[in-house]
Design a protein around this nucleic acid. Structure first.
Lengths: 229, 229
DNA sequence: CTAGAATTCAAACGTTCGTTTGAATCCGGG
DNA sequence: CCCGGATTCAAACGAACGTTTGAATTCTAG
């Protein structure tokens, strides 16, 4: 058996996760009711509590489904870079490490049909979600990848003070998060209309250039920071 | 009359705004109920609807109270820079313009007692709020300052393509927003504990260095973006 | 075909929400 | 002193929320 008709593994579960992903992105967690969610998923109102246990557990499942594979892809890319190094190459450059990190997000944003785009925009907003348990879940799911990338940056930039590097990683992460979350939302800067079928490749080039320059910015000599330009 | 005892102008209004600012920052708009809000403000449950009309109107009032003065300060600083220019100085540098923008936010974050810090963290999160009316309110309150700063950057960087500048302003804005919103929230990067009484001056130096480098990053030659380092 | 587990379903539960109401209270000017 | 508008107050409103329940239905293995 089990050869033909692979048996939809929890088809309802998947439909609920997809609907949740989109509605959470559109309206947020609290403003999305189980009734509209299950209606969109074509499921019964009780289905969420049957399959996931509670609304909070559903939120967690939405993030686990995507974040695990996304960060695994990031680590795999880092593995690939460091394997090249062992095979006679050089230590991965900051540019390569940045590319490994942001590439995973931007590739997902191109996946408009698969819902990855919905997820990315939801994710970018959730980093600053008021609910502490949601933030700590995100932090926990990111932790392994973050460790690896921090170590990679430290090896690529041995001369940079550790606390300075951490702050710059913080800034880079923020830039990426906001860019992904806000691309279709705010356009604070007048004339900016990034909605018009924006090219992910061009965005990656622009974003990488910005992040690399920021990461490699000249170190301010502590104490005398006013003079620079 | 009206000389002595200046008569507290809507003391209850102010207490409600302060309580709302803190609770919205801590728990978000939807998760903050009128009951806990009015309780914290020491006011009656009906006070919000009496003084503001509705919960949504209260949210709007919270942002108007702070954003108007903050962006006015930004524009005033820009005026000051351009006045120096007219008096024989040079055109304001990117560094100066960045400083005028981020300085207003960072000065507000030092105002721990006045509640400005609560507001800044609330604001940073609201840029990506799911509710469209809230985002459009923010955009509307930012519009005048954004126009001015875009023009200032264009004069400071005449050689930079307009669309590239807009994206880089977008990136800079995101870095600032995330940094302010997430300083005490997520700490995705292990070992980063920015809560420990972080020095606003040092943060400004770090942030400015990062933003300036990103803004002035070398232009990618369109089409061939892979090679750089 | 049939028993038993897995899933779906309609209905209801108790709670909490934002808002409204109308009376009570405060307060400055005539 | 007293009136009239401004403000506060306790109480209640209907609506919407997440969750639970127990029966109906579907699926699957023997």
């Amino acid at each position: 058996m089990s050869l033909r008709s692979v048996k939809p593994p929890h088809e309802t579960r998947t439909r609920i996760l997809d609907a949740a992903e989109e509605l959470f992105m559109l309206h947020g967690f609290e403003a999305t009711s189980m009734r509209q969610l299950t209606a969109k998923a074509g499921a019964n109102l009780a289905a969420v509590n049957y399959h996931f246990g509670s609304k909070d557990a559903l939120i967690e499942a939405v993030f686990r489904r995507r974040l695990d594979v996304m960060n695994a892809a990031r680590i795999a890319e880092l593995d690939r870079l460091e394997k090249q190094e062992k095979d006679g190459g050089r230590v991965p450059t900051p540019q390569q490490i940045i590319g490994a990190f942001v590439g995973a997000s931007l590739r997902m944003i191109e996946d408009a049909k698969g819902g990855g785009r919905n997820f990315i925009r939801l994710l970018g907003r959730t980093y600053t979600d008021p609910q502490k348990n949601i933030r700590s879940l995100i932090g926990q799911l990111y932790a392994p990848a973050m460790e690896r990338f921090k170590a990679a940056f430290e090896r690529a930039l041995p001369q940079m003070p550790r606390d300075e590097l951490i702050w710059r990683m913080h800034f880079m992460f923020g830039t990426l998060a906001y860019t992904l979350a806000a691309t279709d939302t705010v356009q604070l800067i007048a004339g900016c209309k990034p909605e018009d079928r924006y090219d992910a490749g061009l965005l990656e080039a622009r974003l990488s250039a910005f992040l690399q320059a920021g990461l490699l910015a000249p170190l301010h000599d502590a104490g005398n920071v006013k003079k620079a330009a």
